[in-house]
């Protein structure tokens, strides 16, 4: 039980764990930025009047959304070196997997956000003589973005949790670093409990922050 719980092992390997957490955060941030950019393009494509474009974007989104993330990670871990013809290291393959996978989810959030702006607003803009670009820039997108903020941030927390799945290809993120220490020092109980607590604290603070934001700005 907890009576032989040895917290010292965590402190001794703190440096190693922090390095792992940096990898986790790097992966999260790059995946968010890449996913958002690609996701926005996909959302615009999905809402565009060109049938082919919206069909292609729709297929992309449905394709990635029906696959488990682990399978996507395996796919790109295998595929990227094959396409480039040389080994690039697991980290970059996994990064590609995350950006492409998350883009599908961000696309759906963006699309819902844009569609959440009421049609009347667009008509009002047109009645005022705004051009399409002006209407988008000053009327639709500011409101859409405001509506999307909480969901975008929730998705970021989910993504942060999902990065732990890089375990399956052995990228040294937070969880894998802890796992290595746990096996080396034979301290499974301490290490995994610590990992769980760290993830819990970060994610809970994140979601409480989002809730506060929602109440304050009445999002």
């Amino acid at each position: 039980m907890f009576n032989n719980f040895d917290g010292k092992v965590v402190l001794d390997n703190l440096h190693f764990l922090i390095e792992g957490m940096q990898t986790t955060l790097l992966l999260t941030v790059v995946a968010i930025i890449g996913g958002l950019l690609l996701g926005t393009l996909l959302a615009l494509a999905r809402l565009s009047p060109f049938k082919t474009l919206s069909f292609v974007a729709g297929t992309y989104v449905n394709f990635f959304r029906s696959m488990p993330l682990i399978l996507v990670i395996f796919w790109f871990y295998f595929l990227v070196p094959h396409i480039l013809g040389r080994p690039v290291g697991g980290f970059y393959s996994v990064l590609v997997a995350f950006v492409l996978f998350e883009a599908a989810y961000y696309c759906e959030i963006m699309r819902a956000g844009i569609q959440s702006v009421r049609q009347g607003q667009i008509y009002a803009g047109q009645a005022l003589g705004l051009t399409y670009q002006q209407n988008m820039r000053y009327v639709v997108l500011p409101q859409a973005f405001r509506n999307m903020i909480p969901i975008l941030m929730t998705q970021a927390i989910i993504l942060f949790q999902d990065t732990s799945l890089v375990y399956v290809v052995g990228i040294k993120d937070f969880l894998v670093s802890a796992d290595l220490v746990a096996n080396r020092e034979n301290r499974i109980l301490e290490m995994f409990t610590t990992v769980a607590i760290v993830y819990f604290v970060i994610c809970l603070s994140g979601s409480l922050f989002i809730r506060r934001l929602q109440e304050k700005f009445n999002l």
Partner: peptide
């Protein structure tokens, strides 16, 4: 607020120890 994979490890490796 805990990743599913971490929960999997908690149930499989840590829970029996407790």
């Amino acid at each position: 607020n805990i990743p599913l994979l971490v929960q999997m490890f908690l149930w499989y490796f840590v829970f029996p120890e407790l």
